[in-house]
Nucleic acid binder design. Structure first.
Lengths: 348, 348
DNA sequence: CACGCTGTTGTGAGCGCTAACAATCAACCT
DNA sequence: AGGTTGATTGTTAGCGCTCACAACAGCGTG
């Protein structure tokens, strides 16, 4: 027993054609903005479409045109501020260009997950994929997968021959380090992110370069895992060094590779009775919304995530529509945000 | 001039059928796990599929089955921790059930944006939509749009007849308030979220109820906009009240409606020379990753965003597949996380 | 006035798949 | 043995759309 209402099917192009007294092809022409349709006919059709509440069937269209106009996004760790913001930028840009965006979120980026994600998206016929895969191993895995559509990476570095968009992490790190040196610090310590991450590597590289260019021997690098807790641990170690004042490079300035870890560092310093920025200046990276309200407000590097999203969609669409062939890599400029945590104070 | 390589089309079911020496229908049966296929035939087909690298065309499939197996997600403010985490949970759950998830992110939830978003998704034939629309006006707009597919809300309240999933915000607020009263505070102040938000309303309601049940007259509610800055401003006001000690309810405990604002409150109190929790206890809501590292670590309410995502997909799929008819509303239980910011201290 | 041209509309085929039905064959029952 | 069943496979007809092409009008040109 079928309820009659369950049987009503949405109107088709043929229904509209009948309603408007034209052929289905004319309806199609109106919908695709074909120039050679008389104004009067066009209006008839438009009216009929409205009366029936007609909507073009995307599956039928995709079948015949072989274009799904769907893009995939693979993102690891979408709950973090950076990837989440990039996602928004991506989606908006894609929508403007008439594409649908389908997202696959992975908790961790181990190889199988990536492969499955690509597979999942491929089976729905996406025309291209943006991969927000900040770890070297992900990018490696991605390059080896050899997907049947273009793949653009975000923060994927440019050593592999996948096209991509990144913030100029190294420049950002240089800006922070130079800012700290300019404020009169004789050296700058560094709390880095985890090893496998391209962002950590670039930030560390930028920091190291500036020091070396200034003839300063970079102190030992402390490493965290982006979490506030790991920053806290690093901060405890730095607090110990700052108080001991023996043998090692004096700790007066610290460049922490992201804001969350900087939060932990600040807490550890405070607990160690060390004033910021009075005794030790601290700078972060990312400019999360909370950074302005840290104790003290954090000097950091702002990333224009929306721009990164927009440009990666641009690049992907260029590849899909055959306008780009090479593995181009775009860099987005960072912005240094100076706040109290590195403010030169009166005390020496 | 067409490059020959541009002309190779992906293999079709007919190609596989020829390769395996069967009819295309048998191939279809193998792919849909139809029971009545001889094991040997099945293997022939599987082998042929593998040899050709065949992949079922989802558009053709959707055309004939009238099922796109695609779900839409509309989210306002995806860059926030809560929505972003929910999104991950949603996407995983949908993927497990064999659905593709397409996301539309809106910066603000004004009416036209929502309508366009629904339209965008509808034109791609989504079978249902999960709307992460925490503002009353969004839900209202959504209910009025009358979409051609089921819509499930997340944090959308249950006064309207849309099915939905929410955290039990009111219970969370009760837990915090009771915790503060149990710690010996005579009253609890409240910094609420913006007016139009259902979450603010529920949190304020929970707080108020507990106070009234205990025969305590609730003090005036301060209002913020979820941002650390607005919390900072509210905190300045509270600091003033705490120091003045005249006329008003003494300020010894504050329940802030989210963790970001709590960060601002903590800073303002600290700047006012007020110790937390010594003089004023502070609690938040959300348990963002940073909360554990606030000065001091913040007592807050944890939301199981993954569970919320999972259950909303469950609800949506039930509606799509006709298993549910009513506008059911599910509640997810919150968890109180006790930390130093509300710890009873030695001082009176 | 025959011809070609351009603008406008219609006709037919087919994209790749699934659903319904038909056909075949072996096994089983009476 | 003849008929009936059930398992396995093949055949056919669309799903709703776009593309290629045909048809036809109205116009100017030699």
């Amino acid at each position: 027993m079928v309820h009659p209402a369950d049987d009503v099917r949405p109107p088709t192009m043929a229904d509209v054609a009948r309603e408007a007294g034209v052929s289905h092809q004319t309806v199609s022409r109106v919908l695709s903005d074909h120039p050679n349709v008389r104004a009067a006919t066009r209006e008839q059709v438009t009216l009929a479409i409205e009366r029936l509440g007609y909507r073009r069937n995307s599956a039928a269209r995709a079948l015949v045109t072989r274009r799904t106009r769907t893009l995939g996004v693979i993102a690891v760790n979408t709950a973090l501020y950076g990837p989440a913001s990039t996602l928004t930028g991506l989606e908006e840009a894609a929508r403007e260009q008439g594409y649908l965006v389908s997202t696959v979120s992975l908790r961790t980026g181990e190889g199988q997950g990536l492969k499955d994600a690509i597979d999942h998206l491929a089976s729905w016929g996406v025309e291209g994929v943006v991969a927000i895969t900040p770890q070297r191993s992900h990018v490696q895995a991605l390059a080896e997968l050899d997907a049947p559509f273009p793949v653009v990476t975000v923060e994927g570095g440019h050593q592999l021959d996948l096209p991509g968009v990144s913030l100029d992490q190294e420049l950002g790190a240089r800006m922070v380090t130079e800012h700290l040196l300019a404020a009169g610090h004789g050296n700058v310590w560094h709390v880095a992110g985890p090893d496998d991450w391209l962002e950590s590597e670039a930030r560390t590289a930028g920091w190291r370069t500036v020091l070396e260019e200034s003839g300063i021997r970079p102190p030992r690098v402390l490493t965290g895992d982006w979490s506030p807790l790991s920053g806290y641990r690093a901060g405890q170690e730095l607090a110990g060094l700052a108080l001991a004042r023996r043998g090692t490079t004096p700790v007066t300035a610290v460049f922490v590779a992201n804001d969350q870890m900087a939060l932990g560092v600040l807490r550890a310093l405070r607990e160690g009775g060390i004033r910021t920025p009075g005794q030790v200046a601290v700078a972060g990276f990312d400019d999360i919304p909370e950074a302005e309200f840290f104790p003290p407000p954090l000097t950091t590097v702002r990333q224009d995530f929306a721009a990164i999203g927009r440009r990666s969609i641009g690049l992907l669409v260029d590849h899909i529509e055959g306008r780009a062939r090479k593995a181009e890599h775009l860099l987005v400029e960072p912005q240094l945000i100076m706040r109290a945590s590195t403010r030169p104070s009166n005390e020496s």
